[in-house]
Nucleic acid binder design. Structure first.
Lengths: 293, 293
DNA sequence: GATATCTATACGCTGAGCGTATGCATGACG
DNA sequence: CGTCATGCATACGCTCAGCGTATAGATATC
């Protein structure tokens, strides 16, 4: 009943039988004996515990479940072919994983400048829930993160530093200033949202550390702040990702900047590694003047 | 180099090594010896002709292509699991293939009435290029077609008859009538579009059979007719699929109606077969009053 | 430099999977 | 209605792919 007893051989056999119309012709197409085809399909049916093909003496027709399995079998085989092509083709491609909160507003400029500078290699920006998982699963070649991954398998390099912004209700007295300091926020409640990685209370000196409440998601976070129930602090790219009427963002002058890092598998530089590193660094250095709008 | 030398065993092995971090741990996870894991991965690399993993003495990291192959391998294995689930779950589902020209405007009413009458079984309407190919490939369980498939593997049943409509330029004198007859079209050029299955000249008695021109696609067809260069004839459902300013459709009173059929694999009734047959029949019998808008 | 850890290779063995041969069911045909 | 042709299933023996055990080689750690 476990997957383990399924085999590509069996799937190829099923497909061939349906395509050729008979076990005998499938055997010829597969370069096998008719007996082998018969046994192989029987083993597949036994493994799945379902009859897949109805054999009449003159022709063979798939059962209802056989038809569903057939479609899925084709999908599997197509994926295998794609895997082989992926492995053997020299086509250049780089897939960069990112969480919303990290790459933020630079996604557009990044893609535009990349295709301008490196028309030969495709750039894929793939959204991942966890950057380390994205690398570990092979979903991306490089990954944009904030904190160094706590995983010895990966290396990271800083590509930029960003200011911290304080999220305030639009009618907050502080909203009239161009920037604030940590001390200005004494006595406020700090809302944090771990999923998007907003700043933690460790930013503050211990004596003026604010009270903390957690929110369930970004929308919660934005709502409570817009309602004036407290403040939030977040990195610049993240803030730009979540504009909202009723909320203004102001730089926190004395909060230490937060890093943006590129992460990759240790000791295995992707061909485009250096180019990505340089472009990202430049992107965060030149900030929003880089080529937006 | 051919797909044939790839094996699910090898893919499971690759995934386990990356997930576990070492060959040794992967062996434990797979219930194999370390030697077996080493050989299996080596055989995969040999089959693909590419190095997938870089072995250092302390840890193992995927190469650039290894990472891509890894992602694809996960996809293959996920599809296999899906295949097993598909085969063993008793979840009721019926997938109906259709070409635009056949099911036409009834798609919405069909889905609405189905879910109302049979909430237990999912209905999937899948667009197929060729209804017979859709059945043969397992992409759908039942298929809506016009002509009986010229394939002994499939059976068809008529679910309805539809009027033929004549497509005319809006400023055509005939457009002022509520309906036309074949004889009214004498001397016109008949445009046909084989891809959408518009009516052929056999509709006419031999003595008044019109001149014929073929178009490349539906858009062509609509354009030349709107321009007044000739006329077209098509089934009612098809016509409703392609409304266009500048074109009016009028019933052809003496043209024999065209059938709509349901097709399926011979001798293997899908559980929902009868229900689909009845609903479709009813849909085409009651026409547009069925439940639209 | 000794040690621990991990991968690669050698060797012998077992069983999955193959082909050949044959039995059985069924539609075709006279 | 009997014979034949066609096509799937099963039996039997064989071969080699893939396994485990054992061991050598490589490298970080102490």
């Amino acid at each position: 009943m476990h997957d383990a007893d399924i085999d590509l051989r069996q799937l190829r056999c099923l497909v061939a039988i349906v395509d050729e119309g008979t076990f005998t012709d499938a055997a010829i197409a597969l370069g096998l004996s008719q007996a082998a085809v018969s046994r192989t399909l029987a083993s597949l049916e036994r493994a799945l515990g379902v009859r897949l093909l109805r054999r009449t003496s003159r022709e063979v027709t798939p059962t209802a479940t056989g038809l569903r399995v057939l479609a899925q079998a084709r999908r599997v085989l197509a994926d295998v072919s794609e895997l082989v092509r992926e492995a053997t083709s020299g086509h250049e491609r780089v897939r960069i994983g990112y969480a919303w909160s990290a790459l933020g507003r630079h996604t557009v400029a990044f893609q535009r400048r990349w295709t301008a500078a490196h028309p030969g290699t495709d750039l894929h920006l793939v959204r991942v829930n966890s950057p380390s998982a994205g690398l570990a699963e092979g979903a991306c070649d490089l990954s944009v993160v904030r904190r160094p991954l706590g995983d010895r398998r990966f290396d990271t390099a800083i590509v930029g530093l960003e200011r911290r912004l304080c999220a305030l209700a639009a009618d907050d007295p502080l909203a009239r200033r161009r920037s604030v300091r940590l001390a200005d926020l004494t006595g406020r409640t700090l809302f944090i949202d771990r999923r998007t990685g907003t700043a933690t209370p460790e930013l503050w000196p211990p004596d003026i550390r604010p009270a903390v409440e957690e929110t369930h998601d970004v929308d919660d976070w934005l709502t409570v702040i817009a309602a004036g129930r407290g403040i939030g602090v977040t990195a610049e790219s993240t803030a730009n990702q979540y504009p909202r009427p009723g909320i203004v963002y102001r730089p926190v002058r004395d909060a230490e900047p937060v890093a943006v890092r590129l992460a990759w598998w240790r000791g295995d530089p992707h061909p485009a590694h250096q180019a990505v590193l340089e472009l990202l660094t430049d992107l965060y250095r030149t900030g929003r003047a880089a080529g937006e709008g």
